[in-house]
């Protein structure tokens, strides 16, 4: 049996990966516990230039998913899975970081209203999946960020973590914005 690969800081790859996964799980569980135990206020604390908080949320979520698609394409270029542009510009990695950060920031006001005003709900399948995916998203996002910072992890960990973040975000989007856009008789609200 091969000895576990030991990194220069003394932790084995497996231990480091396990530690990162535990942190991510803790983030998800903490959000779920908060959302479940906190008394939902039912309030709509901010609208910015939208006519309602729900409109702000669906459009912010749409913006986050749109940027996340760009983020995935940049990631594919970084891993040489696509070849457009033919020569990768030197700023590609930083652009990938910037867009990922923007996606995260855009989700915060949406998540705040969900957690604070609505809490964890399980009234039907859509709402339950949305609540679970919302908590999972920030946990796996933490895993992704820690994976980027950690050294010596297997090469597959980072793309898997990034892909899982994207899947979680799309799940949130489908169970909220897409549902909202398609279930409204009045059509899609611009603001």
């Amino acid at each position: 049996m091969a000895a576990p690969a030991v990194t220069h800081r003394g932790l084995s790859r497996q231990a480091k990966l396990l530690l990162i996964l535990v942190v991510g799980a803790a983030v998800s569980v903490a959000l779920g516990v908060y959302a479940d135990s906190h008394t939902p206020t039912g309030e709509r604390p901010y609208t910015l230039f939208f006519s309602d908080t729900i409109h702000l949320k669906v459009w912010f979520a749409t913006a986050a998913v749109s940027l996340a698609v760009v983020q995935v394409l940049l990631g594919l270029r970084l891993y040489d899975k696509v070849h457009v542009p033919r020569t990768a510009p030197p700023w590609l990695g930083d652009a990938h970081r910037l867009i990922g950060t923007l996606v995260f920031v855009i989700t915060l006001p949406v998540a705040y209203q969900c957690l604070w005003a609505l809490g964890f709900q399980s009234a039907d399948t859509r709402v339950l999946v949305h609540s679970l995916a919302g908590c999972f998203f920030y946990g796996v996002f933490a895993v992704k960020v820690l994976t980027v910072r950690a050294r010596g992890l297997p090469g597959w960990v980072l793309p898997v973590a990034g892909g899982t973040v994207f899947v979680a975000l799309v799940t949130i989007f489908v169970t909220s914005s897409v549902w909202f856009f398609t279930s409204r008789p009045a059509g899609i609200p611009l603001f």
Partner: peptide
């Protein structure tokens, strides 16, 4: 700030 506000505004 997000985390602090979640608890600061607890009803």
């Amino acid at each position: 700030t997000f985390a602090i506000l979640l608890f600061a505004n607890e009803p």
